[in-house]
Amino acid sequence: MKTASHLAALSWMVALATIPMSALADSEPTEPPFEVALDIDADGQMDRAVIAQDADNGQAELSIYLAAGEGKLDPSRKPDFVKKSLTEERILALESKGKESLVITSCFGCGANKSTEATLTIVYREGKFLVAGYSRDWDWNVHKSDGTVETTLGGCDIDFLTGKGIASQDLDDGKPVEGKFAPIALADWSDDSRPKPCEF
C-alpha cells in the first residue's frame, strides 16, 4: 500500500520530468568568478581583479577595482576598468605574481588531443593597464586518414616589457625569436593579438 508521501514524491517526479530541458539549461549560471587582491597600481592600497566567464558562449570578462581593499567586495561598486571578451578559452587561474602583476592562465582543449595553455601577464604603467607578457604551449594531435597521428608540439614566451621572446618547436629548447615586441594596451588585446611566434 502506497503512503501519501510516496504519492507526493511520485507526483513531484512526474512534474519535474515534464519541464523542458531547455528551461533547465536557461537557469545555468555563469562560471564561478575568479578573484584576487593585489596592489597593481603600486599606490599602497590593495586592488581587486575579478574574472567571470559566461557558461554559454565562453567569453571571459575581466574587471579591476582600484583601492577596493582586501575585504568583501561591495556588490554595488562599479569597476574602474572592464575588459570584455578577454578570451574564449577556459580560465584556469587568476593570480598575483609579485604584488604589481596579474597573471591569467587559460586553456583550449585542456588536455585533449588538441590542446593549448596560455598565460597572460598584466601590469599597470603610467595610468594604463598593459599586457606585459604572454606565453603559450601547444600539444596538437591530428588523426590522418591513413590512421597515423601528426603531432605538433611547441611553445612561446614573449616579454613585451623587455621586447624579447623565445619559441620552441617539438622537444627542442626555446630559442630567441627575431624582432622586438612592445607592450599592448589591455583594452586592445584579444586572442588575435597573439605574436606570430605563438602561432602554429
Rank of each mutant, 00 (worst) to 15 (best):
K84P: 02
D39Y: 06
E100T: 15
A42Y: 08
G109L: 03
C107M: 07
W12K: 14
V103M: 01
A8S: 10
T87S: 12
H143L: 15
H6D: 15
E31M: 14
S85M: 05
R125T: 12
T148E: 12
T3L: 08
A4S: 06
T148A: 11
L161H: 04
I91W: 04
S135M: 00
K128Q: 11
S106T: 12
D54I: 08
L10P: 02
G58Q: 10
R125Y: 08
F34M: 03
L102Q: 02
G71A: 12
N57Q: 02
A37L: 04
A17T: 03
G174I: 07
T152A: 11
K144V: 15
Q59F: 15
A17L: 09
G44N: 07
F108D: 08
K84S: 10
P79Q: 05
S22C: 13
D172V: 07
Y124P: 02
A52W: 09
C198D: 01
D39M: 07
L94M: 04
A182V: 10
R90Y: 15
Y65E: 05
M13W: 10
T119H: 04
F160Q: 01
T119L: 12
D39G: 09
S85I: 05
E100Q: 13
D54R: 05
T30L: 13
L73E: 02
K83L: 01
F160M: 07
S85N: 15
D43Y: 11
W189F: 12
T162P: 01
W189S: 04
A182I: 09
S11H: 11
R125G: 03
W189C: 02
R77D: 03
S11K: 11
A15I: 06
L92R: 09
G165A: 09
D172M: 12
L153S: 07
T148G: 14
P197G: 01
E88L: 14
K114W: 13
G44P: 05
G179K: 03
A55L: 08
S106W: 00
T87C: 07
T121E: 12
D159I: 07
G71N: 06
G111R: 03
K2L: 13
P29S: 14
A52H: 09
K84L: 11
A55I: 03
P195Q: 04
D170M: 11
I40C: 11
L120Q: 06
S106E: 10
F129I: 00
S85T: 12
D188G: 06
I51Q: 04
S101N: 08
L62P: 02
F129D: 00
E31V: 13
V123Q: 08
K72C: 01
I122H: 00
D80L: 07
S63N: 10
M1N: 09
D74A: 08
T116N: 03
A4T: 04
G163L: 06
E70Q: 14
G174E: 05
